[in-house]
Design a protein around this nucleic acid. Structure first.
Lengths: 158, 158
DNA sequence: GCACATTAGTTACAATTGCAACCATTATAG
DNA sequence: CTATAATGGTTGCAATTGTAACTAATGTGC
């Protein structure tokens, strides 16, 4: 891929990694989002909140934001929608009345246990072509690229 | 990754491939979009249009949409903005007066040749950690995942 | 040649998102 | 204790995006 310094060569978008990542993610996310919406009435942000609360009940909104890479506004909106649909319950932390403690309700747990197998199934099918070692490669590559992307950060103004 | 059929196990979002793809892409896209906007006054859709026209002058909006995985509305908006900023010129195809033929203007070419090295540089830095064979792996994995994701498509209603 | 479907592209409107300003509560400085 | 800052979370507004409806031009069947 683009290692050599060939200059003045026109760029083929279809070989450009950031573009390809974007297309791939968009394809996957659209498929998943559609399925979650149709089958469970969940948006992706809502699903993310449910997913972390399923694993870690009692988190605050800020904790959820941190664990899901969502910003606090997105969390706030997802939570308020989940409160309306009674899938999440909120209590105020005693000792700090700003902080909320979020948990899945019984309904929320029930949705959780319907979505999780579905999500796993989708992932399984997405990765069906790959051997165990290819999956391990993918795993590593995603980690390293993400680490690198975070390090590069908000690209230096020039 | 999620190959075995273990049921009733709670899901760790941070090991879930679709989620990780989404985070990675989001990190990369945000960085790139910010830089394009600041340095060149380009949105991602505009950059994509410029990128394909730089390689293939004379495409129609529909062609551009196909090559960039954007929908026609997004292309229309990006093109109209690029027309306003005089980076793209449009002529009507004679023989079919619906069809437009899009080309970069001199200004458009000039932006193109400033963006391309920048894009390459970002990609180079993103992939800096990876050996040649790891890059080849990544390349293959992205292709195969995308093929697979397209095949799975708008997840079957159940 | 005339209805009817198709295709290219735009426009209008609704939903989503992102950012900044904003309360309320707790923490810190003097 | 009071003033100021910092934290948790929500709300309002503007920009972005997606969907559907629409106009204009071409193609098709008869």
């Amino acid at each position: 891929m683009g290692t050599n310094g060939k200059q003045r060569e026109r760029l083929r978008l279809e070989h450009f990694v950031p573009y390809r990542l974007s297309i791939l993610t968009n394809t996957v996310s659209t498929a998943i989002a559609g399925a979650y919406a149709r089958r469970f009435g969940l948006s992706i942000p809502e699903w993310r909140v449910i997913a972390v609360l399923g694993l870690d009940p009692g988190l605050s909104a800020a904790d959820v934001a941190e664990r899901t890479a969502m910003d606090k506004v997105a969390v706030s909106r997802a939570v308020s929608s989940l409160l309306r649909s009674r899938r999440v319950v909120r209590t105020r932390a005693n000792g700090d009345r700003r902080r909320s403690e979020l948990k899945l309700s019984r309904q929320g747990e029930s949705v959780y246990w319907r979505v999780v197998p579905f999500a796993r199934q989708y992932e399984r099918e997405l990765l069906a072509d790959l051997s165990a070692s290819e999956r391990a490669n993918l795993d590593q590559l995603l980690n390293r690229l993400h680490r690198r992307a975070r390090a590069l950060g908000p690209v230096r103004p020039g």
